[in-house]
Amino acid sequence: MHEILVVSGKGGAGKTSVTGAFAHLSDNAILCDLDVDAPDFHLLSQPEKYQTHEFWSGYEAHIRQDDCMQCGDCLERCRFDAIKEEDGLYTVDPIKCEGCKVCVALCPGDAIDFNLKKCGEWYRSHTRFGQLVHAQLYPGEENSGRLVALLKDEARKTAKEYGYEIMLADGAPGIGCPVISSLSGTDLAVFVTEPTPSGLHDLERVAALCDHFRVKGCVVINKYDLNTDMTEKIESFCEQKGYPVAGRVPHSNAVTAAMVERKTVTEYDSSMYTDFAGIWNNVLSQL
């Protein structure tokens, strides 16, 4: 099985729209949304969940009131202001608790538990494009990289069970922990960029990240006709670095109109279907 990851180095470059078009064009792919902090692939794919699983990771402190000596030692030691005191009762604010365990280790009454916490959920779903593995990390929670790794493992199991030949994943924006985790085992990264100075800058940094992990990459230039001079600069950069340009996507109001109807642009507009069909074939040729 080949693994294709769509990344952008930033948010708003059109990564999910490109992934959606690829999902529509593919005929034997397991789909995966690896943007666990702010997933949006479900907006286009309209998944029907058939499995829901809890994601437990990290720890948070909890004070047992019956055993608390009300000494205030935990309040003084907490660097994150997670301990609250009201009418002589000490409690832990789970939003502020960073799980450092200082209060647990140094409580003179041994009155603080250190419990594993539920950070989110992950799902298996049916879509009109095939099966989708996706998740939702709760706001402010950590371990997004670990959740991404879990999703990839589950997608691989599903692919093996049903005989999928490709894993197509919508990656997170940027170059942080979830993107690094997404790159593990990836055969090809598709860089989606825009013809702007920031688009080129973010392309350079996500490409450098993939180079570091020895992941092959190719480029899709979205809305290329908004600034043809910048498009030429991006293509020149790709030529220098050896990144194939899989294709150009013209600016089109059909993309937004398709989103409103919760469709991929290839389902909505026949000319865009033709454009993306050529790009998808170029991407597959890189495997």
Rank of each mutant, 00 (worst) to 15 (best):
G217S: 15
Y164L: 03
W280T: 02
R262I: 15
V6T: 07
D40H: 14
Q131F: 06
G72P: 06
S271C: 11
A159E: 04
G58P: 11
R248F: 11
A257I: 05
E267I: 10
L44F: 15
P250G: 12
H42N: 13
S271E: 13
G20D: 02
S181V: 02
M259C: 15
E86G: 05
R79P: 02
E204C: 15
D93Q: 01
P178F: 03
K241D: 05
Y164N: 05
V179R: 06
R214K: 14
A257E: 13
G145K: 08
V192T: 13
P139K: 09
F80Q: 03
Q51R: 08
L89P: 07
H42G: 13
R124G: 06
Q51D: 00
L284D: 01
V220Y: 05
M167F: 04
S184D: 14
T193K: 07
V219L: 12
Y123C: 10
D27Q: 10
D66S: 07
A155V: 11
G278E: 13
A21E: 04
K216A: 12
V255Q: 01
C97K: 04
V192W: 04
K152N: 01
E85L: 04
A159V: 07
I279A: 03
K49C: 10
A155E: 09
S236A: 13
F22K: 10
A13G: 02
C218K: 08
G12V: 09
I180P: 03
G217K: 10
T264R: 02
K84H: 09
A257M: 03
F22D: 01
Q70T: 14
T127G: 13
G120P: 00
G130R: 03
L34E: 02
D153A: 08
P139Y: 06
F191I: 15
D37T: 10
E142Q: 00
E154K: 14
S144R: 01
A172F: 09
K10P: 07
D229V: 14
L137V: 01
V206D: 06
V255F: 05
N143T: 02
A246R: 12
F191Y: 15
G14K: 02
E86K: 14
P197A: 08
P250Y: 06
R205T: 11
L226N: 13
E161T: 07
L284V: 07
W56D: 00
M272R: 10
P47W: 01
D225Q: 13
S45P: 00
V190G: 09
E239R: 11
A169N: 07
E3A: 15
F80W: 15
G217R: 07
C68H: 12
V283T: 05
C210H: 11
K84Y: 08
S26H: 05
E194T: 04
I234H: 08
R214S: 09
A13L: 00
L106K: 15
L183K: 08
L43Q: 04
E154W: 04
E261Y: 04
P250M: 08
K152H: 01
V206F: 05
D170P: 09
F191T: 15
V104K: 09
I234A: 15
T158Y: 00
H24R: 14
L168T: 05
G88N: 03
E261W: 06
D170K: 10
E235I: 06
L200K: 13
W280A: 02
A246W: 02
P197Q: 04
F213Y: 15
P195K: 10
H134E: 12
N115D: 12
